[in-house]
Amino acid sequence: MWRDALLVAGKDLRVEARSRVATNQVAPYALVILLLFGFAFDSNRPLLTQAAPGLFWVAVLLCSLLAVQRSFAIEAADGARDGLRLSGLDPAGIFLGKAAAVAAVLVGLEVLLGAGVVVLYGTGLHDPLLLVATAVLATAGLGAAGTVYGIMAAGLRVRETLLPLLILPVVAPVLLAATEAWRAALGLSADNGWRWLTLLGSFAAIYVTLGVLGFGTLLEEA
């Protein structure tokens, strides 16, 4: 299973590296979102600094939609999904591989967005360890949940419009917990940010389990 996961993740990331969609399209999109938030808040710097954690994670959610859509769009052409089905790879491995590739793309985007938030919104880093731990768990959850819904919508004609409706309400707990943890990590609240990691961890665990168990069933029907 793990070997299959590595194979699939390696394949997806190689496709990304060669097509450069993530770097040439998704990354600029993420920066545009940050700039638009600046306009929306009328360049009110204190307000932007206060809202930075929430804005950061909203931007990550929007980017994760694109990453998931991209992850299954590359399987749509040339009957690649049939190839995947016939490859004999463990479905659980395929799921873990695709989720890991989505998460890896998201980590790259988060680093970029994080730098953007620090530079553009003027936030200071208070507890870097908590920032990184939150980002890792939240990204794992987003990757797993996104991949479960991605394969569910993969074979449908209306997937582009249906996917956001399916994913965004479901990942609301990630937005909530990651925002609260980051507020603490950026020194914006006196709350103990570490306790939010339990929620992020259980969310990621639930969706990884669901994906490992159910991906085979969903892949058959995609």
Binding site: M152, A153, L156, V158, L162, L165, L166, L168, P169
Partner: peptide, 14 residues
């Protein structure tokens, strides 16, 4: 919202 999404998924044919 979650169940509206579910109903949307049911309406997709196939």
């Amino acid at each position: 919202a979650v169940f509206v999404g579910y109903l949307g998924l049911r309406r997709t044919g196939g």
